[in-house]
Design a protein around this nucleic acid. Structure first.
Lengths: 206, 206
DNA sequence: CACAAAACCCAGTATCGCTTGGTTTTGTGT
DNA sequence: ACACAAAACCAAGCGATACTGGGTTTTGTG
């Protein structure tokens, strides 16, 4: 997963009406933080809502006051990470040259990286709660990247014999695909692979 | 998932001792076929062992005589698909030029494609039952592809300024990554993206 | 045809996501 | 200041499901 901003989403709020009192707002933050840890450590299936609630010092039933279910909690966690990253990067677009660096940062968080990978594959199924989230996320990612590529092409930094969207999809594909390979064999260098594909996109030298 | 042969695996057999009588062997085949259908249609989580057993005309408990659990059943299904594909293709290595065609074939089976995607991401977790299976599978895939690339480089069909293994990992990465994008937006052309990255690997023309 | 192993099933158990129907706490308008 | 509405919280339990233990019946074989 290309784990960077996607502020499209106001939030996949649960159907309830939580988080208006000060206490509730803080509890929600707590839950997101704790859930992120547990999900990252145990995976989606391995995570029990009972444990999340326990660590937050509340009962399981109260969790359902804040999130409409396990899947909603996961989606909220992922959306929250996106939002945090957006803020941290000042909402700026991703420069192509930054991609290896982003991959390097992801290497520091294998749990979350795996979580994104499994979530984005699971949400693929029609009717899945998080499907729209990931669909829009990819659309947004492809569009932003394509614009970057078109700019780079205009500056002569990227070969002109490929469409910006095709190149964008290839880059994002490599990002996701190589992440899987890295999760199976940490010898694989994600930054290296990203740099490799960027080099393939450079114009012919002589 | 690059869904093609990987005969390394004798089989991730369950710890039991099934399939020695004629009836048992046939039942096991039945179960694999039926389970593949259900998994493809309902996903891993959505699949209940009760339904699989029902469709096979046996009780749920009997299923456990053949497979040690739900995860083992899934792994067996995936390994079986691999094996069948190996036989069908005569065990021949994949030519690089065939990749777009393989992607095209996968487009005909979105359920299985999604199943492979979510399984390969899920099995990522350390200690997961199918982790070794996928790890070896990727290793095998990368090695075979790298050999193909080295050959193509020797014939001058692929640019020499990239290592065979790097190129192989990029290609396989695009294959997996673009599959995800296609699952979210079928407008995406998997064969097109594959062809695109192969074109990037061609030597400079003039 | 005896007998061992495989094939099969009944009747559970434990766990988990989730719901229902409440009580207690918190903030606010007057 | 206090009433009152909404939010925060919980006890108890429901239904489904993956999985087990302890059997019986069926199948193949020496």
């Amino acid at each position: 997963m290309l784990r960077l901003q996607a502020t499209l989403y106001t939030r996949p709020m649960s159907g309830k009406a939580p988080g208006t009192y000060a206490k509730g707002i803080e509890r929600r933050r707590d839950l997101l933080r704790i859930a992120a840890d547990v999900f990252a450590a145990e995976g989606f299936e391995g995570t029990t809502l009972k444990l999340v609630a326990e660590r937050a010092g509340i009962k399981e039933a109260t969790l359902f006051h804040y999130f409409s279910g396990k899947q909603d909690l996961l989606t909220a966690v992922l959306a929250d990470r996106d939002e945090q990253n957006t803020v941290r990067s000042g909402g700026a677009a991703i420069a192509l040259a930054d991609l290896p660096g982003i991959a390097e940062r992801n290497e520091q968080h294998p749990g979350l990286t795996a979580l994104f990978a499994v979530a984005s594959a699971t949400a693929t199924r029609p009717g899945h709660a998080a499907r729209d989230y990931f669909r829009d996320r990819y659309a947004w990612l492809v569009e932003k990247t394509a614009v970057n590529i078109a700019d780079a092409q205009a500056r002569g930094e990227i070969r002109a014999d490929i469409s910006p969207e095709d190149a964008a999809r290839i880059i994002i594909g490599v990002f996701d695909g190589i992440q899987l390979q890295w999760l199976y064999d940490p010898v694989v260098s994600m930054p290296g692979a990203l740099a490799g594909v960027l080099r393939l996109l450079e114009p012919q030298s002589p």
